[in-house]
Nucleic acid binder design. Structure first.
Length: 417
RNA sequence: GUGGCCGUAGCUCAACGGUAGAGUCCCAGAUUGUGAUUCUGGUUGUUGCGGGUUCGAAUCCCGUCGGUCACCCCA
């Protein structure tokens, strides 16, 4: 019996590493004034199949089935449609702008590979009701804060910015229709991956060449990004962002700014991706709700891989995990006659908030110290025939001292952990 | 959905046509009030599964399932 392909079991060590990432997500979001929300794991399939929604690509990856009530349903492949649905339903109850985040599991039926699984956890942050560059900068600030909290620097990752409006403006100048422009953007997305001559053939009907597209990408559109860079610069974050118009992103609902976080090694995939979707809410609600919105998603898989493969980030994580062991205090029962006293002491420490463990059955002292060590405990407290006098050993330094049981709580509190 | 590589003990791997092994981990002891070393002993396998070739298959062939990497796409 194993887990299904592309699905993961999380044994305690793995769960701790996962929780380290999720805690970084949650903490960074709260530092930016975002509040946490969630929706259902299962949604109506229609939510993803509507026009202007995710796009046909994601439909092929849907984990969908018919439930016992003959409803066509799907495990959620992304958060934005659920979020949009919820915002449309109750947006009048909330002051704008909305700053919401979520940490949730998502499902996509695709071939598992490096950085890509069938179930993954994704952090999502969305800022709804403000279409200004200040809102863009706020979202980018959060996207940048997460890898920084994990120990990554400007040398490890970069935000690549692009803008669909800049592209649409350029393509309109070149005489492309809206429909034609949409097709060209799909080609831009493949610019780095497909050979130039086959792309030229695809571009010919639109009156363009690869050289034209490359020319626009190289020339850039600095005036387009000036207000955003000013915002970022005030926060001291401008160095983390760079304009790269070759990014257009696949999802159909993006309308303006789009961006990706990329690791500088480029061995891995995008760490995060997002953008502005100013018409999605209006489209989904038949114009009943019309709010500008921007958001991004950051997955746990690629980010976790990057932590694992970056020595300074891995050391930071391991130090953090060591500093928060499963057990802080281990009671060594050296004399079974004192077991009852040891249990009383255990309970007192636990009530005071310490993470405490002890042997459930009589065991050799050596075994008990081994168990303390294995659990990562900072202190071993020896309860023996000298009771109520205790011996307390700092496991890391092997230093030992004696003190009365009544003073243990205060003594532990005075330690630096 | 397409293609490359790989499935042997809980884990990492060896044996590559001739009786399935090592390290590690785990358990116990050496050590009856002290954990990272050392030493001793012990548990664990339908060699992923199914079929074929052969006197004989972990080994060669086919299929299948799984892993992994790349394409596609994306977190």
């Amino acid at each position: 019996m194993r887990s299904l392909p592309g699905f993961r079991d999380f044994f305690p060590d793995e769960f701790a590493r996962r929780d380290y990432l999720l805690a970084a997500f949650r903490d960074a979001a709260r530092r930016h004034g975002f509040v946490e929300m969630d929706g259902p794991l299962l949604e109506s399939r229609d939510l993803y199949a509507k026009k202007n929604e995710s796009g046909a690509e994601i439909l092929g990856q849907l984990y969908d089935f018919t439930d016992k009530g003959d409803r066509e349903v799907a495990l959620r492949p992304e958060m934005t449609p659920t979020l949009a649905r919820m915002v449309i339903e109750r947006e009048r109850q909330f002051r704008k702008p909305l700053k919401w985040f979520s940490i949730a599991s998502f499902f996509r039926y695709e071939r598992p590979q490096k950085g890509r699984l069938r179930e993954f956890i994704q952090f999502n942050a969305d800022l709804i009701g403000d279409g200004s560059p200040a809102a863009d900068a706020e979202i980018l600030s959060l996207a940048i804060a997460i890898p920084r909290a994990l120990g990554f620097t400007r040398d490890d990752f970069v935000v690549r910015l692009s803008d669909r409006r800049a592209w649409l403006g350029f393509l309109a100048e070149r005489g492309c229709s809206d429909e034609s422009a949409r097709a060209v953007l799909q080609i831009v997305d493949k610019l780095e991956r497909e050979p130039a001559d086959s792309l030229d053939a695809k571009l010919a009907p639109h009156g363009l060449t690869v050289a034209d597209l490359r020319g626009f990408i190289t020339a850039g559109s600095p005036e387009h990004f000036a207000p955003l860079f000013e915002e970022l610069d005030s926060r001291g974050l401008a160095e983390f962002a760079t304009v790269d118009l070759s990014i257009v992103r696949g999802l159909a609902y993006y309308t303006g700014l789009v961006f990706e976080l990329f690791d500088c090694g480029k061995n891995l995939r995008a760490l995060a991706g997002g953008g502005r979707y100013d018409s999605l809410l209006a489209d989904l609600s038949d114009q009943a709700v019309n709010l500008p919105a921007i958001g991004f998603g950051m997955g746990d898989v690629v980010l976790g891989d990057l932590v694992e493969e970056t020595p300074h980030a891995r050391e930071l994580r391991d130090a953090a995990l060591t500093a928060a062991p499963a057990v802080q205090v281990y009671l060594v029962i050296a004399d079974e006659a004192r077991r009852r006293d040891a249990l009383g002491l255990t309970q007192k420490l636990r009530d005071a908030g310490w993470r405490v463990d002890f042997p459930l059955a009589a065991a050799r002292i050596g075994k008990q110290f081994q168990a303390a060590e294995h659990a990562g405990a900072f202190f071993a407290v020896v309860v023996g025939s000298e009771w109520p006098e205790l011996k307390v050993k700092v496991l890391a330094t092997r230093e030992e001292c004696s003190l009365p049981a009544g003073q243990l709580g205060d003594w532990l509190s005075a330690q630096s952990c």
